[in-house]
Design a protein around this nucleic acid. Structure first.
Lengths: 248, 248
DNA sequence: CGCATCATTGAACAAAATCAAGCGAGGTGG
DNA sequence: CCACCTCGCTTGATTTTGTTCAATGATGCG
């Protein structure tokens, strides 16, 4: 199911989407010591409150950041696609104030903080780009605030799909990539809705022909879905590489 | 109403709360060229989509980041207290993907990107600290996602108050500081609730003795308010200086 | 086959939005 | 100084949206 992508490929793609990599830079990326671990769906990767000594790179599958309220309510705050580095912030903040959990069967790569720091120092352009990633991450959080605070259930769900679709595409995984796809429970945790309601909303979206049945990720009519979601990809700060999420 | 605080004082306090400033560093801060502008409540400071060439420092009053949906719904994504630099991200991201609006009568300081970059370069420790600020900002966004997605109206409003209280305290403005305080409309825009409902929720909180009448910001019973809000200040990443928000 | 996970359904219920006024304090202009 | 207007707060009635509870199908896998 998961094609064995060389882990460094993800980084090269990610950083190369913004910068023209020199041979030296490409080399530096490929020499990063990455240790790979596989996770089943719904498995804890890093716990809330941990003080990680390594950063984690998504290679295959989806991983999320989530927080658990004392009342046990789980809220997913962000979803990460291949090429993302979910806990980059811990590099400079020390603590991780949210948990990291795999959503699907996934492969993650781990790089020691030490190695990343050395890497960033030796390749300032790439180091800056990693920094920039944390800012983009923040922009995504901000948009989630808008999504949860300002939109109704239908738009929320549609917006999540739009974002995922656009980011996956930017990551070079145009939908085709099988194995991806969230359960309705996961969608509900990300949108702050009940499972039951997510189910009904999705039936609605399907009836309208905005999403396809099998497993999400297939978008029959991008324009109408984006419309329903009031989706404006600006906040993703994607530069070149598939641009801003045109059509499916 | 607004005591004329020397603008650099805010930065010294902010950065000094985390680092022991050397004389040279203190000097560098005080030599930053800051131009001050005053804004009435509810005034646009920077528009969404702008490409700012200067960063903006909150000196007095409250300022917020907000986005407007195409349907005209306004969502506040973050509130900034004196000492904060709301658009620090634009320094590296170029675009500002949200608007900046003053919530109360406020004084803001503007520093050119050029000056900040030179400053950060000349004072690496302080530059890093500015970077760190953007990460903390991201952590706050993430917590807002939890607040909007996972909590009911009462807890949402209470949580906002807890956050404001804690941040104001950390900024050295223990409540006493008059002139601060949000309207119920603004609270509703920040919590994603209707104005009417915010009103009712606040009446409830007052009846429970969790907040005082006059104008928010006075917290009669911090422990119970924090309890109602499920407030855990860890995400604010405040180090020393009033610690983590003990009692009012 | 039998278990586990995910999707779906219906009915009753709760939470919050909406609509539509009214109130009260502060500020402005006549 | 008072009338008037605006802005923010408050209220009640009603409707919408989403939740909860409790099952029941489906699908896939060992």
């Amino acid at each position: 199911m998961l094609t064995p992508v060389p882990p460094h490929e993800r980084l090269v793609h990610k950083l190369g989407a913004v910068l023209d990599l020199s041979d030296a830079e490409r080399n530096a990326i490929e020499n990063l010591p990455i240790s790979i671990r596989s996770f089943g769906p719904g498995t804890a990767v890093v716990a809330e409150g941990a003080h990680p000594t390594e950063c984690c790179l998504v290679i295959d599958g989806l991983t999320c950041a989530n927080k658990t309220g004392k009342d046990g309510v789980l809220q997913i705050t962000s979803v990460f696609v291949p090429g993302d580095i979910p806990d980059l912030q811990s590099l400079h903040l020390g603590v991780l104030d949210h948990a990291l959990t795999s959503l699907t069967k996934s492969r993650l790569g781990f790089v020691s903080h030490k190695a990343i720091k050395a890497f960033a120092h030796a390749n300032p352009r790439l180091g800056d780009e990693l920094w920039r990633e944390t800012l983009v991450q923040a922009a995504i959080y901000a948009d989630w605030v808008v999504n949860l605070g300002g939109r109704n259930a239908r738009a929320r769900v549609a917006h999540l799909f739009c974002e995922m679709h656009t980011r996956l595409k930017a990551a070079g995984l145009d939908n085709g990539a099988s194995g991806l796809g969230l359960t309705q429970v996961q969608v509900s945790e990300a949108t702050g809705l009940s499972t039951v309601h997510v189910n009904r909303v999705m039936q609605g979206l399907r009836a309208e022909g905005l999403v396809a049945k099998g497993r999400l990720l297939t978008v029959p009519d991008w324009a109408r879905l984006a419309e329903a979601a009031q989706f404006d990809p600006a906040y993703l700060h994607i530069r070149r590489q598939g641009g801003a999420g045109r059509n499916s």
